[in-house]
Design a protein around this nucleic acid. Structure first.
Lengths: 141, 141
DNA sequence: CTTGACCTTGCCATGATGGCAACCCCATCT
DNA sequence: AGATGGGGTTGCCATCATGGCAAGGTCAAG
């Protein structure tokens, strides 16, 4: 194997250092989200500090719920010294809105279910407002 | 075509009546969620009132965020006259908990993003706490 | 030099849904 | 009777982000 300095990591090490699974690192590379990793003579991918930092950026953005498409744009903005913070903010605000909508949808589901569950005895008798609620009209407002 | 009474619907009519797309009706049948539809001589699927009611049940359960697996169990309970309401309630409560967790996760994402967005000027300068937040340590607590 | 851990690629699967294609069937209009 | 259009049938592919498995190559340590 080519000599590897301490700063040059294999995909497994980069995975551990970034919190992104090796599988996903390869996937991100395959869809062009991140630049193809450099390779050793024996075709192993290698990652330097900057590459690992990029992976960590992706991991954090995923953690915030951004899609791959959005992360692609975020990465471009991150690496663009001439970016306008307004562009970043627009992306973030759009994502906040989407989160809000999904939260609202799920909160509504939860409320309906709680309403039904509250009136269900939860014993061994078959009578059940939950099932009847789903089957009948009074389910979804 | 075989004579069809007003109560016997084609898949398109059943779709309109139940709110489930024809594609999804076929899919539900293919995965065994619902019983295979009866067929006309010319192999068209037919749906009677009961079948449509079942599809509506599925649609409502989907609307409440239940997965196909869970809906399968709900359907079985619905059709089981000897069910214990406790079983239904357990399913519902488990789903409520899952919703709660997903809501909490997304609420946390939203809070982090809002915290970052609040401090972003959103103008044409590159300086941006959002990007820096994602790139740096202070992003995810 | 063997062994075990790790790398490579590639394929398959998920869950729920949509789209397209090729073909068949039925009803209605000319 | 024949054309036309709408809707049925199947099957395959795509999504999005991820995991798993398999077959083969490579490296480091015993």
């Amino acid at each position: 194997m080519a000599i590897r300095s301490a700063e040059i990591l294999t995909i497994g090490e980069a995975s551990a250092a970034s919190g992104v699974s090796a599988k996903m690192i390869r996937y991100y590379e395959s869809i062009g989200l991140v630049r193809p990793a450099t390779r050793t003579e024996s075709n192993y991918r290698t990652y330097d500090g900057k590459a690992v930092e990029t992976l960590r950026f992706v991991a954090r953005a995923r953690h915030l719920g951004f899609s791959m498409m959005e992360i692609g744009r975020l990465l471009a903005l991150w690496q663009d010294r001439a970016r306008a913070s307004a562009d970043v903010k627009a992306l973030a605000v759009k994502h906040i809105d989407e989160l809000e909508q999904r939260i609202a949808a799920m909160t509504a589901m939860k409320a309906t279910l709680e309403h039904l569950a509250l009136r269900c005895h939860g014993d061994d008798r078959p009578d059940c407002p939950i099932i009847e609620g789903i089957a009948g009209e009074e389910c979804c407002h």
